[in-house]
Design a protein around this nucleic acid. Structure first.
Length: 328
DNA sequence: AAGATTTGACCGCG
DNA sequence: CGCGGTCAAATCTT
């Protein structure tokens, strides 16, 4: 979480001029990468990814300049559930890439359901893995329920990965951009995440642009170190980041809530609480492994500082050479 | 019919 | 005893 706080704080208090400069540079780099990939790569994945990055930068720039690119928002519209009963889900999933992509689209149509269920569900499905919801619980001192998901391949492969999604307290009231705290537990012993990753790149993008939600992702280290990352899920930029920043040090319950997050690690589950304000110790970072479920998909729009920081961190850990966002 | 979500019940822990 | 996590029957969508 220190990760989050550092980067977000930097963004929050900064004038747009400097930010725009960074974004512009990043955009240019992405454009070059895209050009290179288009010219040389026979694979769709990398090209799509580059295109997505490019798109994100464009949107970020547009935002910074006060321009409103179509797309984002109009999302949780019908949120509010009003009722609260059985489903109408977009039934998300499917064991094949094709069907999963389709389900992703389905989510958009259905689910007028409540508590921003759509966003929540979307956030749930965005991390390249196929999750199956197995529970929902009202949490004390929390206005929003916590959703429990497990890997869809639990039965097939005995995959023990699970995750919890909960809308944060502070940012949701202004409806503008709810923050979802996603905590991953356990390890994906299945390899389907790679397939899923590919499919998201291929088909899940429209959906991606819908959600104004932000996410605070918690990773885990085997020794309990924290390595949470947060980013806005939509075209919302620095503004959101600042909100997320606040989110990280809320005046009320959420703080305790986040301290409860026990990020997962490739090695297993840690029960150590996460200290929001404590910078990750080097040894903790060393233990940080990229959990598949924590992949950052194309829709994610990092604040520049975040991006840089995360990139550096990843590079330092040799993560970028792995399957982070790189469909196999 | 298959498979996913909903939701109340159950269980373990502090 | 309260709370959080999981189970499983019922329900719903495709």
């Amino acid at each position: 979480m220190a990760l989050t706080m550092v980067s977000l704080a930097a963004i929050a208090g900064k004038p747009t001029a400097a930010s725009a400069q960074f974004v512009a540079e990043g955009r240019e780099s992405a454009a070059r990468l895209y050009a290179l990939l288009v010219g040389s790569s026979a694979l769709h994945g990398p090209v799509d990814l580059a295109e997505q990055i490019l798109l994100c930068f464009d949107r970020a720039l547009a935002k910074l300049h006060g321009v409103n690119l179509a797309g984002a928002e109009d999302d949780d519209d019908a949120a509010g559930n009003g009722n609260g009963r059985k489903r109408k889900p977009g039934r998300g999933r499917g064991l094949t890439a094709a069907s999963a992509a389709a389900s992703s689209k389905r989510m958009r149509v259905s689910n007028a359901g409540g508590n921003g269920a759509r966003i929540e569900r979307k956030a749930t499905m965005d991390d390249k893995f196929l999750w199956r919801k197995y529970g929902q619980k009202e949490i004390k001192n929390s206005k929003h329920p916590r959703f429990y998901y497990r890997c869809s391949y639990k039965d097939d492969h005995g995959c023990t990965a699970t995750k919890q999604v909960q809308q944060s307290e502070t940012a949701d009231d202004d409806t503008a951009s709810p923050v979802y705290i996603i905590t991953y537990f356990g390890e994906h012993t299945c390899r389907h995440g790679d397939d899923a990753a590919a499919m998201v790149v291929d088909g899940g993008e429209e959906e991606d642009q819908l959600s104004p939600a932000q996410m605070v992702i918690s990773f885990a280290s085997s020794n309990g170190g924290d390595a949470s990352v947060s980013w806005p899920c939509s075209g919302d930029d620095a503004q959101n980041n600042s909100e997320t920043s606040h989110e990280s040090s809320p005046p009320e319950a959420p703080a305790g809530e986040e301290e409860h997050l026990r990020p997962c690690t490739a090695a297993g589950v840690s029960d150590e609480p996460i200290m929001e304000s404590t910078p990750p110790a080097p040894e903790l970072l060393a233990d940080l492994k990229p959990m598949d479920g924590c992949l950052l998909d194309g829709e994610s729009l990092f604040g520049m500082d975040e991006l840089v920081y995360f990139h550096e961190l990843s590079a330092a850990l040799g993560l970028l050479d792995r399957d982070w966002g790189a469909p196999v």
